[in-house]
């Protein structure tokens, strides 16, 4: 096991009576790309701000390259795209990059940045003339300009059209290939799936899942069987193969990883079934599912 470049140990953050982060343990190793998922208010941004040193935590320890979070050493090796950032409109990308590059001891040459993020078409235009995607690429360039080891991307593609999103994904993949460690928050499982190998799932300030993307999908790759039926949901819920059963008037939903086995047993038990459908899980369903479990953290496989 190598030394983690980010080490969050038992971090709790409270605002008054509200607990925003609760006993978070999180490690990031060199070269990893981690997707941080969670509902709004789950604590993703707070966790990132804590690691960046922008927000103080109530308890625990956060180290970045063995330095305190927010220390100059830490800040020199981190680049970030924060959520909902707007840059002053009256400067041009070149001017913003010139200024930002001056903050770092070993900045990337401007040409390299412009090339890497394909900024040349609008490098000399004022920001109020740029599209959302162009701005987002500039933000990424700002995150990159100090040639950092770790890059934080807090919802980098939110509000972008498909095309811009794909362009940005390509840019992020290039960073990944360049050996950067990336922490990415997103609403989109698809985006996490496309970019990250590891996934951390936050619910109400707690880590509900932390493991490989494949493991996550395996665990949560359940299907839903839906039918109009008078079956006894408590009986069905007791089956080993069934994850969850819910009834909505005469319609029953059964969540399971073993569709065929459950269907066979349903048919065998001679209950009335009509209007039967089988569908894949949506992320929303998974989130619902996880929140319903209300159980201990689902442990992924240690990498």
């Amino acid at each position: 096991m190598q030394t983690p470049i980010i080490n969050v140990v038992d971090v709790t953050k409270e605002y008054g009576n509200t607990t925003v982060l609760s006993a978070i343990d999180f490690k990031l190793n060199h070269g990893e790309v981690v997707a941080l998922l969670g509902e709004n208010g789950a604590g993703k941004t707070t966790l990132i701000n804590t690691i960046l040193g922008l927000t103080a935590h109530s308890k625990g320890a956060v180290k970045v390259f063995d330095a305190d979070a927010g220390s100059k050493t830490a800040r020199q090796r981190i680049g970030c795209v924060l959520q909902d950032t707007q840059l002053p409109d009256t400067l041009t990308p070149i001017e913003h990059l010139t200024l930002f590059s001056s903050y770092y001891p070993t900045p990337l040459p401007l040409e390299v940045l412009i090339d890497l993020l394909s900024l040349e078409d609008f490098a000399h235009r004022r920001l109020n003339q740029l599209s959302g995607g162009q701005k987002q690429r500039l933000y990424l360039a700002l995150a990159m300009c100090g040639d950092p080891d770790i890059i934080f991307l807090d919802e980098p593609t939110v509000g972008l059209d498909i095309h811009s999103r794909k362009q940005l994904w390509n840019a992020i993949k290039k960073l990944q290939q360049a050996g950067k460690s990336i922490i990415l928050t997103t609403h989109y499982l698809e985006e996490a799936d496309a970019l990250a190998e590891r996934l951390v799932y936050l619910v109400k300030g707690q880590i509900q899942f932390d493991g490989a993307m494949s493991e996550f999908k395996k665990q949560f790759n359940a299907k839903t069987i839906c039918a109009i039926s008078d079956l006894d949901i408590h009986e069905v819920d007791a089956w080993d193969t069934v994850t969850a059963v819910t009834r909505n008037q005469d319609r029953v939903s059964i969540v399971t990883h073993h569709v065929e086995a459950v269907l066979a047993r349903l048919f065998q038990s001679n209950v009335n079934l009509s209007d039967l459908t089988v569908s894949s899980q949506t992320l929303e369903n998974i989130m619902y599912q996880i929140s319903q479990q209300n159980s201990d953290v689902v442990k992924g496989v240690d990498q």
Partner: peptide
């Protein structure tokens, strides 16, 4: 304004 726009925060996160 720049505080609300997150610009100030981005500078705080940078080593400036």
């Amino acid at each position: 304004i720049e505080k609300d726009q997150g610009w100030l925060q981005l500078k705080q996160a940078s080593p400036m």
